[in-house]
Computed example of a mutant assay.
Amino acid sequence: MIGSELAQQVAGDVAAVLPSAVPLAASVPQPGNEHVAAAFAGAVVAEVNGAQAGVVALLVGADLVNALASSPLGGLDLAAATQPALDTLASGLSLTAGAGAQAEPASVVATMAGPFTVVPLIGAGIDAAIVIQDRLLTPAVAPGFAAAPSAAPSAAPSGPTPGAAVPQLGHVAPVANRNGSTSSRGIEMLHGVVMEVTVELGRTRMTVRDLLALAPGAVLELDRAAGSPADLLVNGRLIARGEVVVVDEDFGLRITEVIDEAAAS
């Protein structure tokens, strides 16, 4: 059926961009049931819009959840880290994804509000899965899909082979935290995660009266002397300081000091 073919192709695209310490491959699509969330530690849900409107979701294992929580840059947001994967999922359905929202894995089944398809993403085990409402897999959602190039088998060497047993999500033990730690998977699974970096020149405090009185030409005095280094913040956490420079008519920051974890805290 074209719906299952589309689901597997989309899952293969998602596997290429989802943060993981090992290459992921799309397994065989299977009908969703109330047990699919049991093997996962985290979930992100997003609304999709276009020819149809609906909901899609990503289920992820404890390795990714724990790696984000224990990042040396501070706790990172699961929804933000997986947004590129959600965008890829929606794009494969000829739809557009809204911002993902973190959810409890057990709530995903109810969020689907009807029949849905699950495609496991296989790495060292069932490391993740995509969840798609069945009505989003109709040909009308992805016109011309039959003519689209099929995913290259070599792109997912660890995927299931013909005759191999298909992982059944409703009958597997949780793969999360198999060895009691994420150290063997490594922080390298986060290397491709896009972070928002902020440069802060200084701060000040103002009353609401003064804020309402602001007008073009007003000057705010910051709590930092002229010539002092600016702060580089990632996810609100101070990681470095530097001096503001101009690069091709744009502002830049030349790093002069990297803040160690003890100093930052």
Rank of each mutant, 00 (worst) to 15 (best):
A147E: 01
F145Y: 04
S184T: 15
V197L: 15
R224G: 04
G202A: 06
F145A: 05
A151M: 01
D210S: 09
L220V: 08
F145C: 00
L169S: 00
T161H: 05
S184Q: 15
L222F: 04
L190P: 12
P216F: 13
A147I: 00
P216Q: 03
P149W: 00
F145R: 03
R203P: 06
L211K: 10
A155R: 06
D223K: 10
I187S: 11
P174W: 05
A226N: 03
S184E: 15
S183C: 05
N179E: 15
V175D: 14
A152F: 01
F145D: 00
E221G: 14
V193I: 13
V208W: 05
T198G: 04
G163M: 07
H171E: 14
A164I: 00
T182Y: 10
V172K: 07
P153I: 02
S183T: 13
R203D: 08
Q168S: 03
P174D: 14
V208P: 03
V194G: 09
A173T: 07
V175Y: 13
L211W: 08
H171R: 14
G170A: 09
A152N: 07
S181R: 14
V166D: 12
V166L: 06
P143V: 02
A173N: 11
S183R: 11
G170S: 13
P229C: 15
G159V: 03
T138G: 04
G202H: 12
P229M: 10
V219M: 10
P162A: 10
V175A: 13
G192P: 06
A147N: 07
S184K: 14
G192S: 13
R185H: 10
N177Y: 04
V199F: 06
V219R: 07
R178M: 15
N177C: 08
L190Y: 12
T207F: 08
G159K: 02
R224P: 05
V175C: 08
R185K: 12
G163K: 09
S183E: 15
T198L: 07
N177A: 15
V193A: 13
A165Q: 13
L190I: 06
L214N: 12
M195P: 03
A176W: 01
L214H: 12
A151N: 01
R185V: 14
E188P: 01
A140I: 04
G159D: 00
A156L: 01
L201V: 09
G186C: 05
L201F: 09
L220R: 06
L201G: 14
N179S: 10
H171N: 07
E200F: 03
N177R: 11
P174F: 06
P157G: 11
A147H: 02
V175K: 08
R203S: 13
G163S: 11
A148T: 03
R178C: 04
V175R: 09
G186M: 05
A176E: 11
A176I: 02
S183W: 08
D223T: 09
P174S: 15
P162L: 06
N177H: 14
R224M: 12
A215Y: 03
G227V: 08
G227F: 10
P160W: 00
A155P: 00
V219W: 06
V193S: 14
G144T: 01
A164G: 13
A146G: 03
V172P: 05
A213Y: 05
L214S: 11
L212M: 13
E196C: 04
A146S: 01
N177M: 15
E221N: 09
A146E: 04
V219S: 08
A165N: 12
D210N: 12
V219P: 12
A146H: 05
A148Q: 07
A173G: 08
P143Q: 03
